[in-house]
Design a protein around this nucleic acid. Structure first.
Lengths: 294, 294
DNA sequence: AGCATGCATAAGTGGAGCTTATGCCAATGA
DNA sequence: TCATTGGCATAAGCTCCACTTATGCATGCT
């Protein structure tokens, strides 16, 4: 395809001039000077080899060639103006959030309803993955991931420290006669006991303990592990912020104050270059506020 | 209308990249480097606040935003490409020639048929005016006008010298007993005798003559004056080239060799800037050839 | 491993696309 | 008739942006 299109700048100027039938008004509309319009029109006429306007004393008129070209050009520009004009609004329509399963299930999902209510114009699409997403390869607006919060090109906000503590169901604690000291841990099952956090937890409580061999099929999903714990099947290491409601309801209790932590945290992150995109800014403000107010 | 259109150069590059799903191929199509395409796409994405492409290892893909924008953009560009692509061909379709009445009637019109046959793609529209046309104000491709052939901004080709000579019908000459010497002129009527050329003509033939007062209603159109002469109503001053056929047919005769001339000529003229427009070039070549070959 | 493919990025540059300033023409109006 | 005004053309000069060149990096292929 021999792209014989004349310079687009000239075409745009022609479109405005033809619509206004005035170089001066076209210049005003395009935010440039009348001289620039005159220059571009001349350029286009030279390029096409035919005059497009008749310069009559006080009035500008299109030649036949111009009359033929003008409506077609305007039609094309109307399409562009419509598409790029509605783009912004369209873009605000959906926000794609990618998080880890646990955060989505235990923290975000329960709160999303409120967000949707306060931001009716944007629908949140919540995706969960285990793999780390690459913003240049996948279509995601913001992510919640764990780490130290330093990712090149990304702006991040700390949400929740990654800290684990022991949780059991009150019924289980009662059945084994109470969990008063770490030594009592021998009385209960350890859920998801392949989890390396158990090692740290026992180290932190200063009580030597022989960890049993890991389960054949580790669970590794806090939501499920927590369900097992609530069912009284054993003790689980869980992030307290994720189960605040369960503790408040009395479905889980935290027998010891011992909390382990490796310095990682859950972070909200998104490309630095998109920090001013309204829907992203709105979501960030909301989630940071939610964290602050508990 | 807030013309929030992003830079058109970026839009054009996006259109090509989206169509090719490859920055490299788009660059080749647009005759620029891959780096330039990458730059423009980034510019557009920054401007819109949303990525348009997913840069996957060996394959480029459009994001949802890109998928929404691409077809609309391509549609607009297809319109432009179609319009500006067909423009040239359309432009060749008609040639507007503006001449003086006499030249059109006596010289051009009889030959136009042959031109149309040899250039079937362009229709010639022949307009005649008395007023001098201004190419910037009226829609005309070429003119034939008389003068010295020097007009700023115009390119001109000399066609025919403006020379007048006496013509009468053979019947009239016979009726008055022949026109042998200028003295015989007293025997016939002078057609269009207000015409200043008569003064020059009598001066040139060296024979004193009292010009009668001008007609109440001067004709000033050679075609009509010539008709009157052919009808035997008197002698007329006519441009010989315009009446070659009538002389050949014996409908008019030129009794004396005396010819007057003020240095003016009929010229073909058109804007210098349009000298390479095919239809103009073709017409000029043809008319110059017709003049040369008589 | 090593090569090929394809996009990103940095640095540097040339010229397109402006602006400012001025001229010119014709219509308008006192 | 003369001054005024509206509107486009033109010249000169500058600025910045759209490019190129060169290189890097990641991935997939052989």
């Amino acid at each position: 395809m021999t792209d014989a299109l004349p310079p687009l700048a000239a075409i745009r100027v022609f479109e405005a001039a033809a619509r206004n039938l005035s170089f001066t008004r076209a210049a005003a509309e395009l935010g440039m000077t009348q001289a620039a319009v005159s220059y571009q029109i001349k350029l286009l006429e030279d390029r096409l080899g035919a005059p497009l306007f008749l310069r009559q004393p006080r009035a500008l008129a299109l030649t036949e060639a111009g009359q033929w070209l003008a409506p077609r050009t305007t039609e094309a520009f109307d399409l562009l103006r419509d598409a790029y004009g509605r783009f912004g609004e369209r873009e605000e329509a959906t926000l794609i959030v990618n998080t880890m399963h646990t955060f989505a299930a235990q923290w975000l999902a329960p709160r999303l309803g409120a967000y949707q209510l306060s931001h009716p114009k944007t629908a949140v699409r919540l995706e969960t993955t285990t793999r780390v997403v690459d913003f240049t390869r996948e279509e995601v607006d913001v992510v919640v991931r764990s780490g130290k919060g330093q990712w090149p090109g990304l702006l991040s906000h700390k949400l929740i420290d990654v800290r684990y503590t022991l949780m059991v169901s009150p019924a289980l604690a009662k059945r084994v006669g109470g969990l008063e000291t770490p030594a009592d841990m021998a009385k209960i099952e350890l859920l998801d006991r392949g989890d390396a956090w158990w090692l740290q937890w026992f180290a932190a409580c200063g009580h030597p303990f022989d960890l049993p061999p890991p389960d054949a099929a580790p669970i590794m999903l806090q939501t499920i592990t927590a369900s097992a714990a609530m069912a009284g099947l054993g003790g689980a290491l869980l992030v307290p912020e994720f189960f605040a409601q369960e503790i408040a309801d009395g479905r889980l209790i935290q027998p010891f104050d011992i909390v382990v932590d490796d310095g990682n945290a859950y972070w909200l992150a998104f490309p630095e270059s998109r920090r001013n995109v309204p829907k992203i800014k709105a979501f960030r403000d909301w989630i940071v506020g939610e964290i602050r107010t508990g």
